[in-house]
Amino acid sequence: MSPGDGNDDDLYGGTGQTRTRLPEGGPGDGYGDGRRPARSSSRSLITVVGVVVLLIAAIAFANRGDESSSGSGDGKKPGASATAPTGTKAVASGFAHDKQGAQSAAANYAVALVSADILKPDRRTEIVRQLFVADKVAGLEAKFDKAYSTDFLSRLGLDTNGNAPAGQTYVSRTVPVGTKTTAYSDGTATAEVWCTGAFGTAGESTKNPVTNDWFTMTLKLRWTDGDWKVESFSQKDGPSPVNGDNKISSADEIAKAVEQYGGFTYAR
């Protein structure tokens, strides 16, 4: 999702992929008994690539547009909001006005931008208004709404409110693995967030099983009203480690894990 951030082929794999992150335009890696080989089969790989392409396309579309970045004044930093492991608050605030604060903001925002909530119209509006600089909000709300259309959601097996069918659980959990700043000034910063996560739908009849993914998000931030806010963002695949020979869990185990383990919203 990034307007004019350089090489779009690098950011979106040349396919217009998008992350909220579902494993691919169709189904991703399937569940099954036994252990998955260290390398996926060609069929599984094609399936996973499909879902990732679909989601990255929506984010790329939503983030397309004007991308001028200008520094804002200093302003007082609001007190940091409390965050709970339940994920009740999708995004933290009150980040320090330095490189580490920019990295922390980027890590939190990456989690929110690639969450299941971004597919829910009401929550999406709240997230966009909290994350982005004020002059980008109106345009991005319209672009996100168009990107995550009813047709798009139906292809993911979700209803118009972004919910999975009864008996299934839609999963989009992003985990920041590391961050770095590639540019920094008093009013602007560019931070990269290396992420992994679990994406897909857990359920016995799902066509889009939960799979793992690795990607890097680049967020251009602006210091405004005493906090770091997003100017624009983009993403690219990897770096990805070799797949481990892990025993694949059942759809029920994945769904229960999502319910029992709250997602984190604050990092670094």
Score class of each variant (00 low, 15 high):
residue 83 T to F: 01
residue 54 L to N: 08
residue 103 Q to K: 07
residue 56 I to V: 00
residue 95 F to Y: 05
residue 105 A to P: 00
residue 75 G to A: 06
residue 89 K to A: 06
residue 66 D to S: 12
residue 87 G to H: 08
residue 92 A to V: 09
residue 73 G to W: 07
residue 63 N to C: 06
residue 98 D to W: 04
residue 80 A to G: 04
residue 86 T to H: 06
residue 103 Q to G: 03
residue 73 G to C: 07
residue 71 G to Q: 05
residue 77 K to G: 00
residue 97 H to M: 01
residue 95 F to D: 00
residue 63 N to E: 09
residue 90 A to P: 05
residue 89 K to Q: 11
residue 68 S to Q: 13
residue 101 G to N: 01
residue 68 S to E: 15
residue 73 G to P: 11
residue 97 H to L: 01
residue 102 A to Q: 11
residue 85 P to W: 09
residue 85 P to M: 01
residue 71 G to R: 09
residue 60 A to T: 09
residue 62 A to C: 09
residue 95 F to C: 02
residue 101 G to C: 01
residue 89 K to R: 11
residue 97 H to G: 00
residue 61 F to Q: 07
residue 84 A to T: 07
residue 67 E to L: 03
residue 56 I to G: 04
residue 72 S to C: 04
residue 95 F to N: 00
residue 99 K to H: 02
residue 90 A to R: 07
residue 82 A to G: 06
residue 77 K to P: 00
residue 88 T to F: 14
residue 73 G to S: 15
residue 83 T to G: 00
residue 86 T to G: 15
residue 55 L to T: 04
residue 92 A to D: 15
residue 79 G to A: 11
residue 57 A to F: 11
residue 95 F to M: 00
residue 101 G to E: 03
residue 78 P to H: 10
residue 81 S to D: 05
residue 75 G to D: 06
residue 96 A to L: 02
residue 74 D to Y: 12
residue 91 V to F: 04
residue 102 A to V: 12
residue 64 R to N: 10
residue 81 S to I: 04
residue 105 A to Y: 06
residue 84 A to Y: 14
residue 87 G to P: 09
residue 78 P to Q: 04
residue 78 P to I: 04
residue 99 K to S: 05
residue 53 V to M: 06
residue 67 E to R: 15
residue 101 G to P: 02
residue 55 L to M: 03
residue 65 G to V: 07
residue 59 I to D: 13
residue 81 S to Q: 03
residue 71 G to C: 07
residue 88 T to S: 10
residue 85 P to S: 02
residue 56 I to D: 07
residue 94 G to T: 05
residue 87 G to S: 12
residue 54 L to E: 10
residue 70 S to A: 13
residue 69 S to V: 09
residue 61 F to D: 13
residue 96 A to V: 07
residue 68 S to F: 10
residue 58 A to Q: 13
residue 102 A to H: 09
residue 100 Q to D: 15
residue 57 A to W: 08
residue 64 R to Q: 14
residue 76 K to H: 11
residue 74 D to H: 13
residue 63 N to W: 05
residue 87 G to Q: 11
residue 79 G to H: 08
residue 100 Q to T: 14
residue 94 G to M: 04
residue 88 T to N: 08
residue 93 S to T: 01
residue 81 S to G: 05
residue 96 A to W: 01
residue 74 D to P: 07
residue 64 R to M: 05
residue 61 F to Y: 12
residue 94 G to I: 07
residue 84 A to S: 06
residue 102 A to T: 11
residue 76 K to M: 12
residue 94 G to S: 03
residue 86 T to F: 11
residue 91 V to I: 11
residue 62 A to G: 15
residue 91 V to Q: 01
residue 54 L to S: 02
residue 54 L to I: 00
residue 71 G to F: 09
residue 84 A to K: 08
residue 94 G to V: 04
residue 66 D to P: 12
residue 53 V to K: 08
residue 60 A to K: 15
residue 73 G to M: 09
residue 69 S to L: 05
residue 74 D to A: 09
residue 103 Q to N: 12
residue 89 K to N: 08
residue 103 Q to V: 00
residue 88 T to V: 06
residue 70 S to Y: 13
residue 75 G to Q: 09
residue 72 S to N: 11
residue 59 I to M: 09
residue 103 Q to R: 08
residue 62 A to Y: 13
residue 79 G to Y: 03
residue 59 I to V: 08
